[in-house]
């Protein structure tokens, strides 16, 4: 009863393994600000089904999520909350700015709208559109996965002290 060891062992670096694991288990935070959030809901429904990319576990609590999906207009009144929620998320964490408003403020060049979430938190992937189609969430997710794959331990610490 010889075990075929050769075919059952994969040699890889820790970094690759970790990135591979992270890549396919991006848990988004359900976090809707405005119109774009509706399209995000559709992304979870049967027609688009983001579960195919390992991202179906939308978490209502920031402490259990790794992906913050800012979908909608960020206002100055809301900005402190968004910042706090971002800080509550555990490392490693990523941010997708979903929709023109989240990217740049969109059509609202006004006194109470933050002109893009990147003014307060770092953004990894930008998705333009007003609103973007639900499919573009998948594109964004794949782009993010590509990005995660290339990350090195130095860039993104494996263990971070709170």
């Amino acid at each position: 009863m010889g075990v075929d060891i050769e075919r059952n062992i994969v040699v890889t670096s820790i970094e690759k393994l970790v990135n591979w694991g992270r890549k396919y288990s991006v848990w988004p935070l359900t976090f809707g600000l405005a119109c774009c959030a509706l399209e995000f809901i559709v992304a979870g429904s049967a027609t688009i089904d983001m579960a195919r990319f390992g991202s179906e576990v939308a978490r209502p609590s920031p402490r259990q999520a790794d992906l913050m999906l800012v979908a909608g207009t960020l206002t100055k009144k809301m900005a402190p909350m968004v910042k706090r929620i971002y800080e509550q998320m555990a490392e490693p964490k990523w941010v997708i700015a979903f929709g023109s408003c989240a990217c740049t403020g969109g059509i609202f060049k006004s006194y109470n709208v933050v002109q893009g979430v990147d003014q307060i938190i770092p953004v990894d992937v930008y998705v333009p559109g007003c609103p973007p189609r639900p499919e573009s969430f998948l594109t964004a997710l794949i782009k993010l996965q590509e990005k995660i794959e290339k990350e090195t331990v130095k860039e993104r610490k494996l263990i971070t002290a709170p």
Partner: peptide, 23 residues
């Protein structure tokens, strides 16, 4: 309330009648 106050009533005053439709 007010966490999504985007100032639409103000912005509407800065556009022509056709342009304000998008808001």
């Amino acid at each position: 309330i007010g966490y999504l106050h985007r100032g639409v009533e103000k912005l509407g005053e800065t556009r022509t009648y056709h342009q304000a439709l998008v808001f």
